[in-house]
């Protein structure tokens, strides 16, 4: 059974219709001992059905070690949103509820190759001199 149905599916499809450039949604998953892996993979695959510009790749966390290392994935389920390069954007855990909107937003930004951040914010980011790793902890509701 589809996780994205009816009006929701139509709404997401119209959101993704505006993707100007190709986007990759890369899912890391495994069969066993991962409660939300299956649904996360299904969400990724269903999103891929909704836009020609959105390419979905699925890798096995246990087997595809090269890709796991390349994208520095340390837990699953994981989703990487990639545009013309890897921006370092990851979603860990099932993207449900508000997180689904965040994922959609990341896909749209990647497709636009641009964010809606203010000029001041970009200027502040330009002052960074060393790597910054952000982890935003959220819950589905």
């Amino acid at each position: 059974m589809a996780l994205l149905q009816g009006r929701d599916r139509q709404r997401v499809q119209s959101e993704l219709a505006s993707l100007a450039n190709p986007v990759k949604l890369i899912n890391f998953t495994q069969e066993l001992a991962c409660e939300y892996c299956r649904d996360t993979e299904q969400i990724a695959r269903e999103l891929g059905e909704l836009s020609d510009k959105l390419q979905v790749e699925v890798y096995n966390f246990q087997i595809d070690k090269e890709q796991v290392a390349r994208y520095r994935i340390d837990k699953i389920p994981a989703l990487v949103v990639e545009g013309e390069k890897d921006y370092g954007v990851r979603f860990y855990g099932i993207p449900m509820g508000y997180e689904f909107m965040s994922l959609l937003g990341a896909i749209k930004d990647a497709g636009a190759r641009a964010t809606g951040l203010a000029a001041k914010t970009k200027a502040a980011l330009a002052t960074l001199v060393k790597p910054v790793h952000l982890q935003v902890y959220v819950t589905p509701t």
Partner: peptide, 26 residues
């Protein structure tokens, strides 16, 4: 996206309780 120095993980807190505990996510 706006900085090559920044990586950003969104983490579902309830699925990774050991991390939520480590980072004191209340």
């Amino acid at each position: 996206m706006e900085s090559d120095l920044v990586t950003a993980d969104m983490v579902e807190a309830t699925e990774f309780p050991h991390l939520s505990m480590r980072y004191q996510v209340r």
